[in-house]
Amino acid sequence: MTIPAHRDLVLDVRGLRKTFHSRNGGPREALRGIGFSIERGSCLAVVGESGSGKTTAARIVAGLESATSGTVVVTDGRAGGKTRHGVQMVFQDPYGSLDPRQAVGAGLHELLKIHGMRRRADRRTRVSELLESVGLDDRHAGRYPASLSGGQRQRVAIARALALNPALLILDEAVSALDVSVQAQVLNLLADIRERTRISYLFVSHDLGVVRQVSDTCIVLRNGRLIESGPTADVLDAPRQGYTRALVDAVPRPGWRPRRRPA
């Protein structure tokens, strides 16, 4: 298969396999040879139920887990007037991913300093800029995670992930733990950031409404296999696989009735 030269891919994953070995349960194949790619500036959603392998795939792309076999290629490039490098990740639980004993601003300063921004004045400007880009301001810089609401905490996690201008932002169930009224704010924020910066997203979620809202393309995983892929609108409006249809049909909406699965 040849890829046309004009496709500017930020992520290209091929033949990804992952086998976990437990001490007594024997080998368990979490991913059984899946492939997908993301064009620069676009958002790919990875959809699936628990145990489908979606988080494992995201963690391998983030470099937090090693693959048993397969390749993951991330290509840096220019988008929105900036050169963007590597990947960053936002996790589901902002309680667990922020240091409870470090103020929000100090954390951002530290992060920028470690990555070579020596001048304090530069860092200060950048911290303000980052907080503003996620809808917070300098007043929040002195706050600790415990004094922030769940939505604000997730904004801080996003600001931290954006600090180093990553080429790809990996969001693993990043809005799942938020209340619906706050979830909508964060989804709008993610859409704005992408429009402004042309950053690319790999968005892992079990929530098809959220997926429809944020992504351009999506892949559906089941038991570590890729079941269906394509533009999100096509996959959700006219699923080709029975499994995808069952997923779409199970989402409560006006006029919906719960249904027993055929035994």
Binding site: V180, S181, Q183, L187, N188, R212, Q213, L236, V248, R253
Partner: peptide, 13 residues
């Protein structure tokens, strides 16, 4: 503010 699976529009948060 609940996103729908059937259409995309800016959410009124």
């Amino acid at each position: 503010c609940r996103p729908s699976t059937a259409e995309v529009k800016r959410l009124t948060a």
